[in-house]
């Protein structure tokens, strides 16, 4: 699913978070939104998710104008920085949540849901942990559950907000590889926000560098390193 962002801007009270941003992301691409805090990268991600409504501009998923669509009807999966797992539900119940709340007509049978949960647990390498509660899991495991939960409804687009921010270096690396592998396997279009340049360059096909609400450069890591277009980009690479 390709994504097109056209002249999107957003401000919070007097604070301009995003100013006239336009980007096109290809189907099955893995894009990183990179920048310091306050650069607008999370705002852009949340607009893609439908968690924020832009003041100007449009967002297209494939041929559909989704600008006014609610998050649930956009076909996205969202992974939060602090996992946002439901503490009172088991891992399996968390993963099944998106399916359990579907309208009766669209909801798969209980059997199907159970199978799907097992599939996803295997995908994120947590097979057998379905009956545990989030409080019994490590940070890395929790993020895997969050990922599985976001994928339960077969989204075409996966959005991740600094997903590894709260984890230590070794776990980050493991999850990073797992994420890329899942992205490739499922043929997703993935957008993820980070302030870690090394991570962005290691994972992404293309990186968008944001500064003060504008996209300074949007290119492959190799291209950015070879020809940084501005002082900001240059200083970010150091």
């Amino acid at each position: 699913m390709s994504i097109r962002v056209e002249h999107v801007s957003k401000s919070f009270s007097a604070y301009p978070a995003l100013g006239d941003v336009s980007l096109t992301m290809r189907d099955k691409e893995f894009v990183a939104l990179l920048g310091p805090s306050g650069s607008g990268k999370t705002t852009l991600l949340r607009i893609l998710a439908g968690l924020e409504v832009p003041e100007t501009g449009k967002v297209w998923f494939g041929k559909r104008d989704v600008t006014a669509d609610k998050p649930a009807s956009r076909g996205i999966g969202f992974v939060f920085q602090h996992y946002a797992l439901f503490g009172h539900m088991t891992v399996a119940e968390n993963i099944a949540f998106g399916l359990a709340v579907m309208k009766r007509a669209d909801r798969p049978s209980r059997d199907k849901i159970r199978k799907r949960v097992e599939e996803l647990l295997a995908l994120v390498q947590l097979a057998g942990l379905g009956a545990r509660y989030p409080s019994q899991l490590s940070g890395g495991q929790r993020q895997r559950v969050a990922l599985a939960r976001a994928l339960a409804r077969n989204p075409r687009i996966l959005l991740l907000d600094e997903p590894f921010g709260a984890l230590d270096a070794k776990v980050r690396r493991e999850l990073r590889d797992a994420l890329r592998q899942i992205h490739d396997e499922l043929g997703l279009t993935s957008i993820f926000v980070t302030h870690d340049q090394e991570e962005a360059f290691a994972l992404a096909d293309r990186v968008a560098l944001l500064n003060h609400g504008r996209v300074e450069q949007f290119a492959t890591p190799a291209e950015i390193e070879a020809e940084p277009v501005s002082d900001f980009v240059r200083s970010f690479l150091e």
Binding site: L51, P71, F97, R149
Partner: peptide, 15 residues
């Protein structure tokens, strides 16, 4: 109850 939890439910399709 964090915003994130409710947003997660929202992105997963809950009313």
């Amino acid at each position: 109850v964090s915003n994130e939890i409710e947003e997660a439910a929202l992105t997963l399709g809950a009313s």
